[in-house]
């Protein structure tokens, strides 16, 4: 299982290298938590300041599309976790496919989100030129500004995640990455994917379930 050729410069053994990679990624995840933390701070701050108008606006969002999207992301996380199990078991082919499915679900999430934006634009709820007919009331626009920033930033993360997973799946398909020797690569990249899921788990109640 340990091939010395895979241990890179500053490290002396594969276990040390794996620990460093996982630890590095988790620290990065902590920075992501605080990155979205700024947006959550704004959401919670303004929800306390403008509770009624925020509840009213939140009710106009498409809760069922968002619920469906939550299911999609949770499912993708399950496949990501299975990919790690497959990678550790040395099943490169299964790992590649499972990562592919995870990425496909990510794309499905983005598709649904895009459809939701389109609907909101048509309804005059999106604070973009031409799509903001119904946002005359200040508090309402404030909520939708935050909504667009939060979901937009999240969508950027999903896009990066999809690219990352597809890239690794392609490398497995071309045998550039081998299992189980490089299972750490799968562990580290799926950690990022799970975090995107966790952030959505919090964005969902903060935006759609404001009551």
């Amino acid at each position: 299982m340990t091939r010395s050729g895979l241990v890179e410069e500053p490290f002396s053994d594969p276990e040390q290298q794996r620990r460093a990679a996982l630890f590095g990624m988790t620290i990065f995840l902590a920075t992501e938590i605080l990155l979205f933390g700024g947006i959550f701070a704004a959401l919670i701050f303004y929800q306390a300041a403008h509770r009624e108008i925020f509840v009213e606006t939140s009710r106009e969002l498409h809760i069922w599309i968002a619920t469906g999207n939550t299911v999609v992301l949770l499912t993708s996380s399950l496949f990501a976790a299975l990919a790690v199990a497959a990678a550790k078991a040395g099943n490169g082919k299964a790992t590649g496919w499972l990562l592919g499915v995870t990425a496909a679900l990510g794309l499905a999430f983005l598709g649904l989100k895009g459809w939701e934006y389109a609907l909101e634009y048509g309804e005059g709820l999106l604070p973009l030129a031409g799509g903001d007919a119904k946002l005359g009331e200040p508090g309402k626009r404030l909520f939708m500004d935050l909504y667009l920033m939060a979901t937009g930033l999240h969508a950027v993360h999903v896009t990066i995640g999809v690219c990352l997973l597809l890239f690794i799946a392609a490398r497995i398909a071309t045998r550039a990455t081998r299992m189980p020797e490089q299972a750490t690569t799968i562990e580290v990249s799926t950690l990022y994917w799970h975090l995107i899921d966790v952030i959505w788990v919090f964005l969902f109640p903060a935006l759609y379930l404001v009551r």
Binding site: L22, G37, S77, A81
Partner: peptide, 28 residues
């Protein structure tokens, strides 16, 4: 705990994410 496999990892990794949460709590 389960999907990200933190139940199997050491204290350093858990502490990193926990620190993120604690600092977020301070901010909020």
């Amino acid at each position: 705990w389960f999907f990200m496999g933190f139940r199997r990892e050491g204290w350093a990794v858990r502490l990193a994410v926990l620190a993120g949460l604690v600092w977020l709590t301070i901010l909020l």
